[in-house]
Design a protein around this nucleic acid. Structure first.
Lengths: 336, 336
DNA sequence: CTGAAAGCGCTTACAG
DNA sequence: CTGAAAGCGCTTACAG
């Protein structure tokens, strides 16, 4: 009964201590100060279990991502966690390993821990799993799930501008023959990016050649294979845009293996701006996915849902091109 | 009062339900089954806050790392989290960002959440911060903190064998002139690795040339600068071992920039086996840090401390050399 | 503006 | 082997 000690020392009831703790309005300023002094002197820290049990508010948020090992997520986790910490909120986090079935399980674990809110920052979100949270009365926020945006708060990411910038950069260098490494079209993100890319091509009056669109598995290996397929084309593109950095890295490796120099013989642009993008050789020009902003927006949305206060900017987040060293004019291209 | 519903349905007291829930011995088999059926039928899930409040056991573990953005950690976090999940334990995790001051804060947050145990998987661990946990009666486990190994359970990682393997690999290729990129010697890990490397040299009767030991900051940039320093030496080493992969990647970049081909003109070996090690060109030969094993050992140690049961293997973990494509015979070396 | 008291959902001596 | 009851440390109507 630790709040009791504080109450004694401050010569008030535990109810009043609780009011001060929770910053309820309507406590006399003098009383507030007495209580705060007692809290400080006793080095008192409220017991989160007792609070959670009684108030049904745990100050615990859940964060679900696809895969910690994917270098896309750590920065997002970091940012989310930092914002939570700043408000005295703790985060428990799990990952689905891209398995929709595991999302169910992740959400259930969060519910059992009675988190106050859940950020589902996975690339795919099965509605069945989200239902559970809704039934338990726990707010949920999604990342870039356009289909579910009407039903759940969502952090939208617009791909069009970023791909337009990438294309215009290549055009300004003189490229006209531009290939694309797509991802599996069952993935939201892969589909959206491909659409954005082809839309950009069309808006510049460039014909979309289906032989210059290869599909990879979103991993390095898939990028390598897709690039090999593109390099086997006759004629072949002078520049290639990839759906994500991992595949762009694979494309780089395939080029190396075929003794094609990047960017002299071939320009490559990735998407995400992972840490590795600047570690490979040559450093990769890429469209930067604003992951910290995604985390911040998601957190703000959840806080709003929990506290019912505040407005949250709902304009789509915009990735932008970062130019490094994997793009150059197509001059040195040799066509076989 | 949900356990009450279960008790009613099973026609027992809540105490008995609790005993079944916690797998206490000495409940009649028949009763156990009646209770379990009731639990299943009602889809009952115990309230972790009530449990934590009453039993002072939260089934919550804390995990503190140096930096989520360092690609070393995600796999460790992943493994730790998976083991915890398998036992119904949730993990809250924070990172110090290499700031010893923040470790204090991380530990305090864990204590306030009344975690059952804390894994401090940071490269440095200040004892002052650990004291807090001890005073709160919370078990702590450390990673590779030899100085504190007597006072706290510790997961030891032996560097000697790995560096010996690396050296012997280079010797077998014909290298004799071998440089080293060290890290800041105030860091445990950097110091231990340098010692292991020089010990390996000496055991093979090779003189340690101090001009061939450059110091970097453990990041890519530091590796690049250190490599530049090494390349400026006259004569220069034909092979270089780096204290970590990030610096080895930097070394690779520096070589590229100086038009030195790896591995033809220069062999490079890293340490850690980060995901990027196999993504750069050429794929990096490196000494693999067994991070999943570290996580497993740490978890086992904590479980033992909490439950007071089980034996945990305390032999040091051994990193081993992974040979990829950044090493070759020194034949093509041009000396200036 | 403040206090007395009930109760959140469990676990744990204690008793039988 | 099982139950009755106290109590973990808070918050929250309710009353004044």
């Amino acid at each position: 009964m630790d709040i009791v000690q504080v109450a004694k020392r401050a010569k008030v009831s535990t109810a009043t201590v609780s009011r001060v703790l929770n910053e309820f309005p309507g406590v006399r300023e003098k009383t507030v100060q007495r209580v705060q002094r007692a809290i400080a002197e006793l080095n008192y820290v409220p017991n989160p279990n007792a609070r959670g049990l009684r108030a049904r508010r745990t100050r615990l948020f859940g964060l679900i991502v696809s895969d910690v090992n994917n270098p896309f997520f750590p920065e997002l986790i970091d940012a989310f966690e930092a914002m939570a910490a700043a408000e005295g909120i703790e985060v428990i986090f799990t990952h689905t390993n891209y398995d929709p079935h595991r999302l169910q399980n992740c959400v259930r674990r969060m519910i059992e821990r009675s988190v106050d809110a859940i950020a589902v920052m996975t690339s795919e979100a099965e509605e069945e799993a989200l239902h559970q949270a809704v039934r338990a009365g726990i707010p949920v926020v999604l990342m870039n799930q356009r289909k579910l945006a009407g039903k759940y708060p969502n952090v939208p990411v617009e791909y069009t501008a970023g791909f337009r910038e990438a294309l215009e950069h290549l055009l300004s260098l003189g490229h006209r023959d531009i290939g694309f490494i797509a991802g599996p079209q069952r993935l939201n993100s892969a589909r959206g990016r491909k659409d954005a890319f082809t839309a950009a091509l069309k808006s510049h009056g460039i014909h979309v050649r289906s032989e210059w669109i290869a599909v990879g598995d979103m991993r390095v290996e898939g990028g390598r294979k897709a690039m090999d397929a593109l390099l086997a084309q006759q004629p072949r593109p002078t520049a290639v845009v990839a759906t994500n950095d991992l595949m762009a890295v694979g494309a780089l490796q395939a080029a190396h293996a075929s003794r094609i120099q990047v960017p002299r013989d071939l320009s490559i642009i990735g998407f995400d701006d992972l840490p590795i993008a600047s570690m490979v050789h040559p450093p990769l020009s890429t469209i930067r996915h604003p992951r910290r902003e995604v985390a911040a927006r998601a957190f703000a949305l959840l806080r709003k849902a929990v506290k019912g206060e505040g407005k949250v900017d709902d304009s789509p987040l915009q990735p932008h091109l970062v130019i490094r060293s994997s793009t150059a004019p197509p001059l040195g291209i040799k066509r076989h």
